[in-house]
Protein backbone atom coordinates (compact mmCIF):
# COMPACT_ATOMS: atom_id res chain seq x y z
CA UNK A 1 0.00 0.00 0.00
CA UNK A 2 2.81 2.39 0.85
CA UNK A 3 4.24 1.59 -2.56
CA UNK A 4 0.94 2.46 -4.19
CA UNK A 5 0.80 5.70 -2.25
CA UNK A 6 4.36 6.48 -3.24
CA UNK A 7 3.46 5.99 -6.89
CA UNK A 8 0.52 8.34 -6.51
CA UNK A 9 2.85 10.95 -5.00
CA UNK A 10 5.35 10.44 -7.83
CA UNK A 11 2.58 10.90 -10.36
CA UNK A 12 1.10 13.90 -8.61
CA UNK A 13 4.38 15.82 -8.65
CA UNK A 14 5.12 14.97 -12.25
CA UNK A 15 1.52 15.71 -13.13
CA UNK A 16 1.58 19.15 -11.51
CA UNK A 17 4.45 20.10 -13.77
CA UNK A 18 2.65 18.73 -16.83
CA UNK A 19 -0.44 20.67 -15.82
CA UNK A 20 1.41 23.93 -15.47
CA UNK A 21 2.97 23.58 -18.89
CA UNK A 22 -0.29 22.33 -20.38
CA UNK A 23 -2.00 25.54 -19.29
CA UNK A 24 0.23 27.50 -21.65
CA UNK A 25 -0.78 25.28 -24.57
CA UNK A 26 -4.41 25.34 -23.74
CA UNK A 27 -4.66 29.11 -23.24
CA UNK A 28 -3.17 29.88 -26.61
CA UNK A 29 -5.18 27.14 -28.24
CA UNK A 30 -8.41 28.21 -26.62
CA UNK A 31 -8.05 31.74 -27.84
CA UNK A 32 -6.66 31.32 -31.30
CA UNK A 33 -6.77 27.64 -32.13
CA UNK A 34 -3.03 27.31 -32.51
CA UNK A 35 -0.65 24.68 -31.16
CA UNK A 36 2.33 26.64 -29.91
CA UNK A 37 4.85 23.86 -30.44
CA UNK A 38 7.64 26.09 -29.15
CA UNK A 39 6.07 26.30 -25.71
CA UNK A 40 8.28 23.51 -24.36
CA UNK A 41 11.33 25.52 -25.41
CA UNK A 42 10.07 28.47 -23.39
CA UNK A 43 10.14 26.18 -20.36
CA UNK A 44 13.71 25.27 -21.21
CA UNK A 45 14.82 28.89 -21.62
CA UNK A 46 13.21 29.69 -18.28
CA UNK A 47 15.17 26.94 -16.54
CA UNK A 48 18.47 27.94 -18.12
CA UNK A 49 18.05 31.66 -17.43
CA UNK A 50 17.28 30.99 -13.81
CA UNK A 51 20.37 28.76 -13.48
CA UNK A 52 22.60 31.45 -14.92
CA UNK A 53 21.17 34.27 -12.82
CA UNK A 54 20.99 32.26 -9.63
CA UNK A 55 24.49 30.87 -9.80
CA UNK A 56 25.99 34.22 -10.83
CA UNK A 57 24.33 35.99 -7.92
CA UNK A 58 25.13 33.18 -5.51
CA UNK A 59 28.74 33.30 -6.59
CA UNK A 60 28.74 37.03 -5.89
CA UNK A 61 27.85 36.29 -2.30
CA UNK A 62 24.09 36.59 -2.24
CA UNK A 63 22.25 34.06 -0.08
CA UNK A 64 21.05 31.17 -2.21
CA UNK A 65 17.37 31.63 -1.41
CA UNK A 66 17.38 35.26 -2.48
CA UNK A 67 19.48 34.52 -5.55
CA UNK A 68 16.96 31.84 -6.47
CA UNK A 69 14.14 34.33 -6.19
CA UNK A 70 15.96 36.74 -8.47
CA UNK A 71 16.61 33.85 -10.84
CA UNK A 72 12.93 33.03 -10.91
CA UNK A 73 11.92 36.62 -11.57
CA UNK A 74 14.55 36.99 -14.29
CA UNK A 75 13.35 33.78 -15.91
CA UNK A 76 9.75 34.92 -15.83
CA UNK A 77 10.56 38.31 -17.32
CA UNK A 78 12.74 36.81 -20.04
CA UNK A 79 10.13 34.23 -20.93
CA UNK A 80 7.36 36.80 -21.00
CA UNK A 81 9.41 38.85 -23.44
CA UNK A 82 10.14 35.70 -25.38
CA UNK A 83 6.49 34.70 -25.51
CA UNK A 84 5.52 38.15 -26.66
CA UNK A 85 8.13 38.18 -29.43
CA UNK A 86 7.22 34.63 -30.48
CA UNK A 87 3.68 35.77 -31.06
CA UNK A 88 4.78 38.95 -32.81
CA UNK A 89 7.36 37.34 -35.08
CA UNK A 90 6.12 33.87 -35.76
CA UNK A 91 2.36 33.76 -35.31
CA UNK A 92 0.69 37.14 -35.74
CA UNK A 93 1.72 37.60 -39.38
CA UNK A 94 0.25 34.18 -40.12
CA UNK A 95 -3.22 34.67 -38.79
CA UNK A 96 -5.69 33.59 -41.40
CA UNK A 97 -3.26 31.38 -43.29
CA UNK A 98 -3.86 27.63 -43.66
CA UNK A 99 -4.00 25.75 -40.35
CA UNK A 100 -0.75 23.92 -40.80
CA UNK A 101 1.31 27.01 -41.56
CA UNK A 102 1.67 28.30 -38.00
CA UNK A 103 2.33 24.74 -36.87
CA UNK A 104 5.38 24.58 -39.10
CA UNK A 105 6.54 28.01 -37.91
CA UNK A 106 6.20 26.78 -34.37
CA UNK A 107 8.33 23.75 -35.15
CA UNK A 108 10.85 26.07 -36.80
CA UNK A 109 10.92 28.34 -33.75
CA UNK A 110 11.38 25.32 -31.56
CA UNK A 111 14.46 24.30 -33.52
CA UNK A 112 15.78 27.86 -33.48
CA UNK A 113 15.35 28.26 -29.73
CA UNK A 114 16.96 24.91 -28.99
CA UNK A 115 20.00 25.73 -31.03
CA UNK A 116 20.31 29.26 -29.70
CA UNK A 117 20.22 27.81 -26.22
CA UNK A 118 22.89 25.35 -27.19
CA UNK A 119 25.11 28.13 -28.50
CA UNK A 120 24.65 30.21 -25.34
CA UNK A 121 24.69 27.52 -22.69
CA UNK A 122 26.68 24.79 -24.32
CA UNK A 123 25.82 21.17 -24.89
CA UNK A 124 26.45 19.80 -21.45
CA UNK A 125 23.87 19.12 -18.84
CA UNK A 126 23.93 21.86 -16.23
CA UNK A 127 23.38 21.23 -12.57
CA UNK A 128 20.74 23.32 -10.92
CA UNK A 129 21.72 24.88 -7.60
CA UNK A 130 19.53 23.45 -4.82
CA UNK A 131 17.17 26.37 -4.20
CA UNK A 132 15.38 24.77 -1.30
CA UNK A 133 16.98 23.01 1.63
CA UNK A 134 16.96 19.28 1.20
CA UNK A 135 14.31 18.13 3.62
CA UNK A 136 13.02 14.60 3.39
CA UNK A 137 9.63 13.71 4.74
CA UNK A 138 8.53 10.25 5.60
CA UNK A 139 4.86 9.54 5.84
CA UNK A 140 3.18 6.14 6.02
CA UNK A 141 6.18 4.52 4.43
CA UNK A 142 6.39 7.01 1.58
CA UNK A 143 9.25 9.39 1.00
CA UNK A 144 8.98 12.85 -0.41
CA UNK A 145 11.02 16.02 -0.35
CA UNK A 146 10.31 19.66 0.35
CA UNK A 147 10.79 20.46 -3.33
CA UNK A 148 8.00 18.08 -4.22
CA UNK A 149 5.64 19.64 -1.70
CA UNK A 150 6.46 23.12 -2.97
CA UNK A 151 5.93 22.07 -6.58
CA UNK A 152 2.45 20.72 -5.92
CA UNK A 153 1.41 23.69 -3.76
CA UNK A 154 2.86 26.30 -6.08
CA UNK A 155 1.25 24.73 -9.13
CA UNK A 156 -2.09 24.67 -7.39
CA UNK A 157 -1.73 28.31 -6.39
CA UNK A 158 -0.76 29.39 -9.89
CA UNK A 159 -3.64 27.48 -11.45
CA UNK A 160 -6.05 29.06 -9.00
CA UNK A 161 -4.62 32.45 -9.88
CA UNK A 162 -5.06 31.80 -13.56
CA UNK A 163 -8.66 30.69 -13.12
CA UNK A 164 -9.30 33.85 -11.18
CA UNK A 165 -7.73 35.91 -13.94
CA UNK A 166 -9.75 34.30 -16.69
CA UNK A 167 -13.12 34.27 -14.93
CA UNK A 168 -12.98 37.30 -12.67
CA UNK A 169 -11.07 40.04 -14.47
CA UNK A 170 -11.71 42.24 -17.44
CA UNK A 171 -8.79 40.79 -19.36
CA UNK A 172 -10.13 37.33 -18.68
CA UNK A 173 -13.51 38.29 -20.02
CA UNK A 174 -11.86 39.69 -23.13
CA UNK A 175 -9.97 36.43 -23.52
CA UNK A 176 -13.11 34.36 -23.28
CA UNK A 177 -14.87 36.65 -25.70
CA UNK A 178 -12.02 36.35 -28.18
CA UNK A 179 -12.05 32.61 -27.83
CA UNK A 180 -15.75 32.45 -28.65
CA UNK A 181 -15.71 34.77 -31.60
CA UNK A 182 -12.81 37.04 -32.42
CA UNK A 183 -14.72 39.11 -34.96
CA UNK A 184 -17.63 39.87 -32.65
CA UNK A 185 -15.28 40.48 -29.73
CA UNK A 186 -13.38 43.07 -31.70
CA UNK A 187 -16.66 44.75 -32.63
CA UNK A 188 -17.38 44.97 -28.91
CA UNK A 189 -14.19 46.94 -28.45
CA UNK A 190 -11.85 44.13 -27.44
CA UNK A 191 -8.32 44.67 -28.68
CA UNK A 192 -7.76 41.22 -30.13
CA UNK A 193 -4.04 41.68 -30.63
CA UNK A 194 -3.52 42.69 -27.06
CA UNK A 195 -5.59 39.80 -25.75
CA UNK A 196 -3.67 37.25 -27.78
CA UNK A 197 -0.34 38.77 -26.81
CA UNK A 198 -1.29 38.66 -23.16
CA UNK A 199 -2.26 35.01 -23.46
CA UNK A 200 1.21 34.30 -24.78
CA UNK A 201 2.86 36.39 -22.08
CA UNK A 202 0.92 34.77 -19.24
CA UNK A 203 1.46 31.29 -20.64
CA UNK A 204 5.18 31.98 -20.93
CA UNK A 205 5.40 33.24 -17.37
CA UNK A 206 3.82 29.97 -16.22
CA UNK A 207 6.27 28.11 -18.43
CA UNK A 208 9.16 29.93 -16.77
CA UNK A 209 7.91 28.88 -13.35
CA UNK A 210 7.53 25.33 -14.63
CA UNK A 211 11.07 25.48 -15.97
CA UNK A 212 12.47 26.57 -12.64
CA UNK A 213 10.43 23.87 -10.90
CA UNK A 214 11.58 21.11 -13.21
CA UNK A 215 15.13 22.36 -12.88
CA UNK A 216 15.15 22.46 -9.11
CA UNK A 217 13.27 19.17 -8.84
CA UNK A 218 15.64 17.12 -10.97
CA UNK A 219 18.54 19.50 -10.33
CA UNK A 220 19.51 19.42 -13.98
CA UNK A 221 18.79 21.49 -17.05
CA UNK A 222 19.70 21.04 -20.67
CA UNK A 223 18.88 22.69 -23.97
CA UNK A 224 16.80 19.70 -25.03
CA UNK A 225 14.80 19.36 -21.83
CA UNK A 226 11.80 21.25 -23.21
CA UNK A 227 10.83 19.10 -26.15
CA UNK A 228 9.63 15.91 -24.46
CA UNK A 229 8.12 17.88 -21.60
CA UNK A 230 6.23 20.05 -24.06
CA UNK A 231 4.99 16.99 -25.89
CA UNK A 232 3.72 15.33 -22.73
CA UNK A 233 2.09 18.55 -21.58
CA UNK A 234 0.45 18.92 -24.95
CA UNK A 235 -0.86 15.38 -24.67
CA UNK A 236 -2.20 16.29 -21.25
CA UNK A 237 -3.94 19.34 -22.64
CA UNK A 238 -5.61 17.30 -25.37
CA UNK A 239 -6.53 14.57 -22.90
CA UNK A 240 -8.35 17.10 -20.76
CA UNK A 241 -9.89 18.82 -23.74
CA UNK A 242 -7.71 21.42 -25.32
CA UNK A 243 -8.83 24.99 -24.82
CA UNK A 244 -10.24 24.20 -21.41
CA UNK A 245 -8.29 25.35 -18.33
CA UNK A 246 -9.73 22.85 -15.87
CA UNK A 247 -9.21 20.17 -18.49
CA UNK A 248 -5.53 20.99 -18.83
CA UNK A 249 -5.01 20.73 -15.10
CA UNK A 250 -6.93 17.50 -14.78
CA UNK A 251 -5.25 16.13 -17.89
CA UNK A 252 -1.80 16.98 -16.57
CA UNK A 253 -2.30 15.37 -13.20
CA UNK A 254 -4.06 12.39 -14.72
CA UNK A 255 -1.23 11.87 -17.16
CA UNK A 256 1.37 12.03 -14.40
CA UNK A 257 -0.49 9.46 -12.34
CA UNK A 258 -1.17 7.19 -15.31
CA UNK A 259 2.50 7.15 -16.14
CA UNK A 260 3.58 6.41 -12.61
CA UNK A 261 1.01 3.66 -12.07
CA UNK A 262 1.63 2.28 -15.55
CA UNK A 263 5.35 2.00 -14.95
CA UNK A 264 4.77 0.54 -11.53
CA UNK A 265 2.09 -2.02 -12.18
CA UNK A 266 1.83 -2.96 -15.83
CA UNK A 267 4.37 -5.73 -15.40
CA UNK A 268 2.34 -7.35 -12.63
CA UNK A 269 -0.91 -7.06 -14.54
CA UNK A 270 0.40 -8.64 -17.70
CA UNK A 271 2.45 -11.33 -16.04
CA UNK A 272 5.68 -9.68 -17.07
CA UNK A 273 4.81 -9.55 -20.75
CA UNK A 274 4.66 -5.77 -20.77
CA UNK A 275 6.95 -3.80 -18.52
CA UNK A 276 8.03 -0.28 -17.78
CA UNK A 277 9.56 -0.09 -21.25
CA UNK A 278 6.05 0.62 -22.40
CA UNK A 279 5.73 3.48 -19.94
CA UNK A 280 5.55 6.16 -22.61
CA UNK A 281 2.82 4.26 -24.42
CA UNK A 282 0.23 4.30 -21.65
CA UNK A 283 -0.29 8.01 -21.92
CA UNK A 284 -0.99 7.68 -25.62
CA UNK A 285 -3.17 4.60 -25.31
CA UNK A 286 -5.30 6.26 -22.64
CA UNK A 287 -5.47 9.30 -24.87
CA UNK A 288 -6.61 7.29 -27.88
CA UNK A 289 -9.22 5.41 -25.86
CA UNK A 290 -10.57 8.60 -24.29
CA UNK A 291 -10.75 10.36 -27.63
CA UNK A 292 -12.54 7.40 -29.23
CA UNK A 293 -15.38 7.82 -26.78
CA UNK A 294 -15.13 11.54 -26.13
CA UNK A 295 -13.68 13.06 -29.28
CA UNK A 296 -13.09 16.46 -27.68
CA UNK A 297 -11.26 15.22 -24.61
CA UNK A 298 -12.47 14.62 -21.09
CA UNK A 299 -13.70 18.13 -20.38
CA UNK A 300 -13.78 19.60 -23.86
CA UNK A 301 -16.96 21.17 -25.05
CA UNK A 302 -18.22 20.50 -28.52
CA UNK A 303 -16.40 23.01 -30.62
CA UNK A 304 -18.16 22.07 -33.80
CA UNK A 305 -15.98 22.67 -36.80
CA UNK A 306 -13.32 24.47 -34.88
CA UNK A 307 -10.87 21.75 -34.06
Amino acid sequence: MDIFLQQIINGLVQGSIYALVALGYTMVYGIMGLINFAHGEVVMIGALISITVTSTLAAAGMPLGLAGLFGLVAAMLTCMALGWSLERIAYRPLRGSPRLTPLITAIGMSIVLQNLAMIFWGRNYMTFPPLLPKVNFEFAGTHFTLVQVVIVLLSAALMAGLVFLVYRTKLGMAMRATAQNPAVASLMGVNINRVIASAFVIGSALAAVAGVMVGSYYEIAHYQMGFMLGLKAFTAAVLGGIGNLAGAMAGGILLGIIEALGAGYIGDFTGGFLGSHYQDIFAFIVLIVVLMFKPSGLFGEKTGDRA
Binding site: R99, L103, D280, I285, I288, P295, A307
Partner: peptide
Protein backbone atom coordinates in the same frame (compact mmCIF):
# COMPACT_ATOMS: atom_id res chain seq x y z
CA UNK B 1 -10.25 3.52 -38.03
CA UNK B 2 -10.23 4.69 -34.41
CA UNK B 3 -9.42 8.24 -35.41
CA UNK B 4 -12.12 8.77 -38.01
CA UNK B 5 -14.23 10.88 -35.72
CA UNK B 6 -11.35 13.11 -34.69
CA UNK B 7 -10.49 16.31 -36.40
CA UNK B 8 -7.57 18.68 -36.68
CA UNK B 9 -5.39 18.89 -33.64
CA UNK B 10 -6.89 15.90 -31.87
CA UNK B 11 -6.01 13.83 -34.87
CA UNK B 12 -2.51 15.30 -34.86
CA UNK B 13 -1.78 14.24 -31.29
CA UNK B 14 -3.29 10.78 -31.74
CA UNK B 15 -1.26 10.11 -34.86
CA UNK B 16 1.79 11.37 -33.05
CA UNK B 17 1.05 8.93 -30.27
CA UNK B 18 0.55 6.14 -32.78
CA UNK B 19 3.96 6.83 -34.29
CA UNK B 20 5.56 6.63 -30.87
CA UNK B 21 3.68 3.44 -30.03
CA UNK B 22 5.03 1.72 -33.14
CA UNK B 23 8.56 2.85 -32.42
CA UNK B 24 8.39 1.77 -28.79
CA UNK B 25 7.04 -1.65 -29.78
Amino acid sequence: SPTLKLRGDYLAIVTLGFGEIIRIF
